[in-house]
């Protein structure tokens, strides 16, 4: 696999929603490529027939009893919201046009 180009790094940064300066992106390009080189070691292993491991303990279908329990209060939940109006969290507009 070829290394990450500068525009690849910018693309991934955008996917990850990380705003960064040109210097940060420059440094990351070198660092990420250095780390990706370490990943290449895994290509030595033939894993064609090996199943993947996503978790190490065999717990399946763990469900809680369907019993209503008290939730956090509205005040507790809203307490950390950076922008509020009454009982609402103010979110950034996601549709263009009239939203301000």
């Amino acid at each position: 696999m070829a290394g990450l180009s500068r525009s690849d790094v910018e693309h991934v940064a955008h996917l990850a929603r990380l705003g960064m300066t040109a210097e940060e992106l420059d440094r990351l390009q070198g660092e990420l490529n250095h780390i990706l080189e370490q990943y290449m070691k895994l290509a030595e292993l033939d894993t064609e027939t090996i199943p993947p491991t996503a978790q190490t303990i065999e717990l399946e279908n763990i469900l809680r009893d369907d019993v209503p329990t008290p939730s956090l209060s509205q005040a507790a939940v809203l307490g950390n919201a950076p922008a509020r109006e009454g009982e609402f969290v103010i979110v950034p507009p996601i549709l263009g046009g009239d939203a301000g």
Binding site: L42, P52, T53
Partner: peptide, 15 residues
């Protein structure tokens, strides 16, 4: 597949 799935498979070998 090349990274995450591969790593999960190698994780099986390590385990």
């Amino acid at each position: 597949d090349a990274f995450y799935l591969k790593a999960q498979k190698v994780r099986t070998l390590i385990k």
